[in-house]
Design a binder for these strands. Structure first.
Lengths: 108, 108
DNA sequence: TTAATATATTAGATTATTCGCATATAATAA
DNA sequence: TTATTATATGCGAATAATCTAATATATTAA
């Protein structure tokens, strides 16, 4: 089996292992936004936002379109959202399992 | 919007941002395997394998079952595989896009 | 109990990631 | 041209992740 797929997959997960970047992707879920718009919706310095955007663009996760002075970012492949939604189901199921276990312990 | 979901999601992506761990998950795709079996299928020291397994177990990604001297690991939630498969489609589409662009450049 | 096999843990050096800050560039308007 | 707004980049310190090597524990068999 070719192990390069694991390295590629790990590489993209490194990009996704930052909550600010996930928040950016979430803000772009329904369509493109300019850096300015993103900046006003998030609580991070502009330079840091720009670093995150640049990283995701380099990796082909986001794409850009310039309109005058503004640069609009959007999600390159909507399947990313699909994968995220499934992963969040996993997280929510984990939460509810922990909750059940907690109740069981309390009632014992 | 509650930003804790982004932190949880980022946390699980940190776990997935290592190619050895992804390889382990892939080896468990069709069912449980003992540490020994995993160890013979992978090219890493046993202690390191154990660290990866322990981490994924703590995070609820893997579960264990003991049978005598052996400990069998398995994937806790098969939806993880579903999400992985979609993410790999994304990666393959990225690859084929780069290839098309390369051919375009060569033919120009 | 001792030995053998399977698995886990700890410590520490190495390497990678993250963010803040300063500065740079790009487009447009005055 | 100069000023202004929008966006990007480079540097460096702080923090986090990774692996190796040594050691520990758990189960079973002799």
């Amino acid at each position: 089996m070719d192990k390069r797929i694991f390295e590629m997959h790990a590489g993209i997960c490194t990009i996704f292992s930052n909550s600010k970047r996930l928040e950016i992707i979430d803000l772009l879920r329904d369509g493109e936004k300019s850096v300015n718009e993103l900046s006003s919706l998030m609580e991070i310095p502009q330079a840091n936002l720009s670093q995150h955007l640049s990283l995701m663009r380099q990796r082909g996760i986001l794409e850009t379109r310039r309109d005058g002075v503004n640069i609009y970012y959007s999600i390159a492949n909507p399947k990313v959202i699909k994968a995220f939604d499934i992963m969040r189901e996993v997280l929510l199921e984990q939460l509810s399992m922990h909750e059940k276990m907690f109740k069981k312990i309390k009632s014992a």
